[in-house]
Design a protein around this nucleic acid. Structure first.
Lengths: 362, 362
DNA sequence: CTGAAAGCGCTAACAA
DNA sequence: TTGTTAGCGCTTTCAG
């Protein structure tokens, strides 16, 4: 096969500096024999020009390949038609579908999606805040409520609409969230029904809103069944696979009699890491220990055994947030009851959870 | 716990229309007692103003919270400081790390990352092309070589630098790619060493560049061992999990004696789908059939058994592409030999591949 | 070293 | 309906 090398030679080497000259509105106007204002109108408010004029303009546009310059338009109209989406960490599988939902809603309205990845803190965050203050985005979506910080000012003061997803940011903002407590309670319910009484919990980062909500929901339901939160074996974590693996190791280090018979990991990644680790050491899932995750990511369906988890409606969350944001951008007042939108997570049974082992009750 | 409802009330309802007034350069100039030109210079070319002036300006900037407006700057400078990254499908796990690499390189140079998701063709693609022609991006990264199409014009004619990743787009462009053939040959090599002679292949879409390269590399190595391409059992596919599942079903439908003893799925997602499906039917992996994937996504590490696969250096690919693009944007001439950059995929042994079963040789 | 002034390309008054 | 004109906020000659 011919090497693809040959396909890679650009015919023309690009010259220094800015773009090749683009056709401007003046060129179109000249060709159509009208003023530039008419061209602008023919394009923006077609009903305000004669059909004949419009036709001439459109034809000229077609011939010249004219596309209105976005910078000029933004400057004039004072809006960028861009939305900044702040992601705590772009490589977490959980966020991809969220972005899909956001993207769908945005592009349906002609908005572009700018990604702000918080991966490496400090200057990056400052930069994102500056961008917004500079008019670089008409609105902001904060995933998992993570708001970029700048030493001197808050995003909230930019005057740009902000919508948060999953957890409240450090300032007031409309919110799309999942009923975390109810979902976590459903996990507890499920495990209790299976007869588990000795439970484990792989946590999220300390002081994390989501972590807190799930813990509260989980333990509240357990309490109702007479199991105190202090009886739950807590493994620290941070949502990532590695944390699940570490939790698995700590589980294995426990005397068999002290091991929980069921473990709720508050992210699928951790659940899978946990499960993989303990299984590798010969612990059977779910016979020896049941495992339940949270999120419903793709991997949950294809690990062994298939993970019991809470499915969060990610695409819908993203879409809801973006739609809310677009209304805000349009200046539409949002009634108070719509400022917080709640969606449900649903328990999806897999094969990783099963009845408590015979000796499971203490 | 108090409901988070209370956190969601924006203190002030946003007014209709454009943003709240932002501080402009004039305000800073007035406060500093200099002309706007001086403010501009103090910020852009600090060494061309007196230290004293600079200090006064900076102080005024600090006090006012001034941030130069990006639209005005773009208009004047004729560059947007934005790069458009075109993704065939944002929810494919494979792309996340690629985006991470791209993002790192871009933000290191102060560029923003605009995501163009091709998910739902037609108008969307047109829109992306228009955006670029409108000066909305200073460069474009095409992941998997997927170029958005517009009925009348090609991205390539926009005059904006373009770099493709993984496969060549329909026009000439600098390219970052992985040595697909060598990697696929390494898979063949690995399976041959294990004694497999009856092989299966879960393909990508017809006429797909990557599919083609992997097939060629795979079968070339087999041919060298005396196995004709026609002897390989081919399952159609499209990179997605579902295709792997379908392939698994077709595998199961084969008489045991006709089943390949090893299957190479050209994506991890398909490999996992395949593996999950055949295992569910009692086929042992790798005892009855070895499975090898391609990509090295997170899921490959946590499925059962751990997948043997080719790890593509995704983050590096993304970074390399973005860096190449930035050089192009800067007007730097790229020597011909750098217009195609090749990286290596590396075979990562898992537990999904093993010796051919005793009766495996024909 | 600093200021005045001319636009970048477009839209939106305001006139005609 | 269409044209003229004044900026949007900034950078950058060109003078001073």
């Amino acid at each position: 096969m011919a090497s693809s090398e040959s396909e890679a030679g650009q015919g023309v080497e690009r010259r220094n500096g800015p773009r090749a000259r683009a056709v401007g509105i003046a060129e179109v106007a000249a060709l159509a024999g009208v003023s530039i204002a008419t061209v602008s109108r023919a394009l923006a408010i077609p009903e305000r020009v004669t059909p004949a004029t419009r036709a001439r303009v459109l034809e000229a546009v077609r011939q010249t390949g004219y596309t209105p310059n976005v910078a000029a338009r933004s400057l004039r109209a004072r809006r960028s038609m861009l939305v900044l989406v702040v992601v705590p960490n772009i490589i977490t599988p959980f966020f991809a579908e969220l972005l899909l939902g956001v993207d769908q809603a945005l592009s349906a309205e002609g908005y572009g999606m700018l990604i702000g990845n918080l991966h490496d803190r400090a200057e990056k965050e400052q930069h994102l805040v500056d961008l917004v203050f500079a008019g670089g985005a008409d609105g902001v979506v904060l995933l998992n409520g993570e708001a970029p910080k700048a030493p001197t000012r808050s995003l909230a003061d930019s005057g740009v609409p902000i919508v948060a997803v999953s957890s409240p940011p450090p300032f007031a903002a409309p919110l799309v969230l999942v009923r975390q407590r109810e979902a976590a309670a459903a996990v507890a319910e499920h495990l209790l029904e299976l007869g588990h009484r000795r439970l484990g919990y792989v946590a999220g980062p300390a002081r994390n809103y989501i972590e807190h909500e799930r813990w509260v929901g989980f333990t509240a339901r357990l309490a109702a069944a007479g199991i105190a939160a202090t009886e739950v074996t807590r493994f620290s974590g941070n949502f990532r696979v590695e944390a699940g693996i570490a939790a698995g190791r700590r589980f294995l280090a426990l005397a068999a009699a002290d091991r929980p018979t069921a473990v709720f990991a508050i992210s699928d990644e951790m659940a899978v890491g946990f499960m993989t680790t303990v299984r590798a050491a010969g612990v059977r899932v779910p016979d020896d220990v049941s495992v339940v995750g949270f999120d419903g990511i793709l991997m949950a369906d294809y690990c062994q055994p298939r993970l019991t988890t809470i499915r969060q409606p990610r695409e819908e969350m993203g879409r809801a947030a973006a739609e809310l944001l677009l209304r805000l951008i349009a200046g539409e007042p949002i009634p108070p009851e719509e400022r917080v939108q709640r969606l449900d997570g649903v328990l999806r049974l897999g094969a990783s959870s099963g009845p408590a082992p015979a000796g499971g009750r203490r």
